[in-house]
Each structure stands twice: as structure tokens, then as C-alpha cells.
Amino acid sequence: MRTFGLLEKGDISLTKPLDSDVPDVATGFRRPQRSALGRRFRATVTAYGFLGPAMALVLVFFIVPGILLLILSFTELSSANFNDPWSYIGFDNFSRLFTDRFFPKILRNTFFYVFTTLILFNLGLALLLALVTTNMPRRAGFFFRLVWLLPRLTPSVVYILMWRRIGQADPFGIYNQLFPEFLGASGGNLFLGGSPWTFVILTNGFIGASFGMIIFTSALESIPKDLLTAAKVDGASLWRIIRDIKIPLIKWPLLFISTYQTLSLLTSFEYILLLTDGGPGLFTTEVWALTAYKRAFASYAGNSQWAFGATWAIVLVTVALILAVGYVKMFKFNELIEEPRIENL
């Protein structure tokens, strides 16, 4: 008899077995014994009942838009033929996309942006901040984490406007005005003009780091103090404690943040749109999601190419799905969320 664990194989009891023919404590009546089929049916219904709301959300906000996107990508829907939205043109949009001269550059940019921001900030800086702020007095740690949350609390337009004012070329940007020759900048043109990628990654990273920081902090705080005390008694250095105790014990949050933030960065474009609009010059900081947005919505002279934008988007969705499955397999998520083995103790 199991008394703990997830619903499995018809078992919907968390506290007592259903199939026992014992009197009900509350009513005193003897409950009739249910057939195995009935139990399984009830368990299935209960499981789907719990999953229902989440499934409905996934269906409405992911599956249905995904299917619509796929259908759209086989049409030529644009502002110019709104009266004939479903005219089928086969794989023309896909062939246009893959023969686009800048497709390889945009793809390279996307992976560069996603993995540089992820490794340096969303994982690296986040972990560093979590480790540092959990190793200082509690109030001070809380204060510094709050400071790092500020970029996330600031509306994106305001946040980017502030950065633009800092990073503009001399004489408009504060930084370039104050330090025109600092850090190898020539002519007061560091950041937005001279090294736009640094700027894009910094601005996104400062926001992205706070999410991992919060998750890692709570994970680090939940490590049993006994383990750390025992390690210290054994003479382990701070570095050994971090490397051999803390990091292995927060493996799950690390993998979760890697997966979540990869997918999040892959589809994020609003900060780049506001900061550089994919420039300066020739698709210098253009990422895939931004191209999809521009194709579908941002044409100056008014011809929104909905279908072509959908084609860029559906390819992105496919890449994201492949990456998500890859992460799940690579990091063996099933093992991480397996049933507790408490009854084996």
C-alpha cells in the first residue's frame, strides 16, 4: 500500500486506499467496492480535470495560433490582398525565406544573441548574484537583489529610452560625452554606434539576470544547513562548497532557467526593436523574431506582409520546439521530476 506519490495506475488516494472495504469514518457506512475499470476512469477524469485549465491555455494560446500561423505561411496574405486572405501559394514563402540573402546572417545573429546573453547574464550573472547575496547578511542580500530587480520593474520603453540616452553617440549620449576616448572608443561613439551588440546584450542581460537570480536564491536558501556545516567542519573551502555542494544541489533550477531563458530569448525582440531596430547598418543586430515582426507589421509604406511574417514566425516556433525537446532529452528532465522514493527508505 502506497500512501504518498503522484496519481498513477488508478490510484487517486493520497491518504488511504480506495479499494479497501472498510467503513467510512465520517458516515459509518460501508463503501461499495469499485471495479478496476471504474477506478481507472475516475482517475483519468480527475487527472485531466487538474490538467484541464493548463491544457485549455496551451490549446488557445499556443496550438491554435501555431496552426493558424502554419496555414497563413502557405498563403500570400498582405495588406494588398486582404480581400482574398486564403489564396494558397504552396511553399513560395519558405523558398523566399531560405533564399533570402540575409537569412544566414539573421540566423547567426539570433544564436549569438541568445547564447551570449544566456551564458553571461541569464545564467552566469544570475548565479553569481544569487551566490553573493546569499553569502552576505540577509537584509543586505535582499537590498542588492531588489536593486537588480529594478530593470525588470521599469517599463520597457522607459528602460530603453534611458539606455539610449546613455549610449547615443557624442554629443547626445551621456557616456560618450563624458568619456569620448575611454575603452578604445574613437570619436565618442562607443555602444550604439561602435559596438551595438555589447549594448544589446547588456541591456537584455541586466533584465534577464534578475529572473535566474530569484530562482537560484530560493534554491540556495533551501539547501539544508547541515550539509554546509558538515562541509565546513570537514575543512571545505568556499569554492569547494559552491562547486561540490551548492551547484549540484541546484541542478534542477539551473536546467530550468537554461531551458526557459533560451526559449524566452529566442522569441524576444522588443528591447532590440526599441534600442537599435536591428541596425545600425545592414541587419547588424537583427534577430529572427524581429524580422518576423517587421515583415508582418512594420512596413513604412503600409504593405504588411502577414503571410511572409508568419513564415518567419513558424520557422522560429519549429526551432524553439526542437530546442525544447533537445533540452528535455539532454538534461533528462524525466529523471529530475521522478517520483520521490521516500517509501524505499
Binding site: Q168, A169, F172, G187, N189, G193, T276, D277, G279, P280
Partner: peptide, 9 residues
Amino acid sequence: MVDTRLDGD
């Protein structure tokens, strides 16, 4: 004109 003149700002 500077090479970053078309910065959209």
C-alpha cells in the same frame, strides 16, 4: 555626416 546618422532616433 557620421556613419551612424541613420539611427532612427
